[in-house]
Design a protein around this nucleic acid. Structure first.
Lengths: 188, 188
DNA sequence: GTCTATACTCAGATAGAC
DNA sequence: GTCTATCTGAGTATAGAC
């Protein structure tokens, strides 16, 4: 069933564009991440592309949303720490997306930028999903009793984000191993 | 004494431009951070501005270098942890610079971008300056013996970087307190 | 060496034809 | 729903005045 304002074909085309863009940016890097670059790859004009997404900024935010959805899909059935590490590990295979993510994270400072909503929602969703599990871990004695779970979430999240900065400069860094070491520090 | 290829006046003007840009971006935010915006504020034409810096990218990298120099100046006589926390604390007063920093960190993915050299040098300098002190701390028993100092440096650095992403979205976050909590975790 | 005016290029956005 | 054509704004290269 088509959503109001978009026929089935449009919705399908949108998906198609997003998946293509995800693939291109992930493998070929951020340099291909211009409206023109993506339009060329998808076989459409820049204006045709923007017909679906309005602006460049919204297009890029949608690309990250699609990536998140795929990451979430891939981690069903796994525990929190395992899923998290798997996502971090997978990031090392898609350098262009890491760059796109860090760019939009900076642009999210602008209150009018759609990336702001995206990151706010994403942080809330991630922390909401994890808060309970970590609290349980702490009550079961798997996490030091003197740690504030809110701090653990902020720090874990920030560590993963910041490691991407370092990895961009030096891809030999093992982001997942460094995050795992942080988890190890939380144990009593 | 003038450097080869530049009269004293030019050197002074360069300093003037950098300080003005630092002030403008710090307080008024990244939006004013276009070549034209800075040129207007300094009372010069865009081309005149680029006479000193070549390209926009190099100008922005120089702005960050100037900021680093001021941060370093301000922390003479203080210990490492104290200096680090002070820099992190001070960042909360200059939102535009935090945004500029995160932006350039993303752009540093491009091998041809001058920000790449900047961040590589900066990381090497920072880690080089801190490595010895932390190793000493560990030998004196002030840091857990089972921790890899290289990891401590990578993680501390990444944490501070990543917290900036979060702070951009929510300025009520206390970046310095969160970093301090990390330091506390390192104790035996 | 310092700096302006001009003009070029390229990206994203928009209007309107089909 | 999609294209072509056009517009706008940013960065920057060039020529040349001072």
């Amino acid at each position: 069933m088509a959503a109001r304002g978009a026929y089935a074909k449009g919705v399908v085309k949108r998906e198609e564009i997003l998946e293509a863009a995800l693939e291109i940016i992930g493998s070929r890097g951020y340099r291909s991440a211009s409206v023109r670059g993506i339009a060329d790859e998808v076989g459409i004009s820049p204006a045709g592309l923007l017909h679906y997404f309005g602006t460049k900024e919204e297009l890029f935010v949608e690309i990250l949303r699609t990536r998140d959805a795929l990451d979430t899909e891939r981690s069903v059935g796994r525990g929190f720490a395992e899923s998290f590490l798997e996502v971090v590990r997978h990031n090392a295979d898609v350098p262009g997306l890491v760059e796109l993510y860090t760019r939009l994270a900076a642009e999210a400072a602008d209150p009018d930028h759609p990336a702001r909503r995206y990151f706010l929602d994403r942080t809330e969703a991630m922390h909401g999903a994890v808060r309970e599990a970590l609290t349980e871990d702490q009550q079961q004695g798997r996490i030091r009793a003197d740690l504030d779970i809110e701090w653990v979430m902020r720090a874990g999240h920030a560590l993963a984000d910041g490691l991407q900065n370092a990895w961009i400069l030096d891809p030999t860094i093992d982001m997942a191993a460094d995050v795992a070491q942080f988890f190890a520090l939380l144990k009593p």
